[in-house]
Amino acid sequence: MASVTFRIWRGDGETGEFVEYSTDITEGMVVLDAVHQVQAESANDLAVRWNCKAGKCGSCSAEVNGVPRLMCMTRMTDLPTDVPVTIEPMQAFPTLKDLVPDVSWNYEAKKQIKPFKPRTPDNEDGSWTMYQEDVDRVQEFRKCIECFLCQDVCHVLRDHHKHEEFVGPRYFVYTAALEMHPLDTEDRTEELKKAFGVGYCNITKCCTVVCPEGITITDNAIIPLKERVADTFYDPIQWLIRKATGK
């Protein structure tokens, strides 16, 4: 058993400070265990958001030593413990209290995206015929646990605060899952260009790096969406047709 010091952000978005706490670390502990131990031992009113503690719900996102991660999947043995471990809330969103960010913007962003609209069922019982190879790429996107770490690390949101013009990597993955769903009949290309701001993404792939589910966000979701936008709006032949038909 070894005592480790943590520097944990206490306060809201406006005011606050890092407060140091020490607690004993035992074999196999993850950062979330340490935070809970601090909460139970010396800071009962410490605010921390969590649910499953198994990397499945995406609630306990935070920045550990400056890196956006799930606290429940960050093992203490992977961190240097001879210096204090710094834990702060995600920086791309306002802080409610301590380690809890206000992520409500994400829920509003999702609502703007047109919902799934399937084609008429293929079979009499109301079901469809789809093959595994047709759904593989959508299933990759549907692994998303909505931890919002990709949103947190994206410089368009984090540094440039384009929350009004840009929906962020999470919602490009969501849109891609809908657009590439074999049954979906909706078209979201215009919004992608205008309201969702897909053009702001300059493919630095920071989102892909932090994704705890290993979704290849940039290559498999964002780039194909950019291509759709380019095909629709910037293809010279399409442009001529639109000019000629007035559509």
């Binding site: 919902p115 799934f116 399937p118 069922p121 019982d125 109301g126 079901s127 469809w128 015929t129 789809m130 093959y131 595994q132 759904v135 959508v138 299933q139 549907r142 809908l178 769903h181 979906d184």
Partner: peptide
């Protein structure tokens, strides 16, 4: 189950393309 599919769920498939 079929209703979930109609709302967008993507279950693993059989060789015949069913759930």
């Amino acid at each position: 189950v079929r209703e979930l599919e109609a709302w967008g769920a993507v279950f693993d498939r059989t060789q015949e393309g069913r759930i």
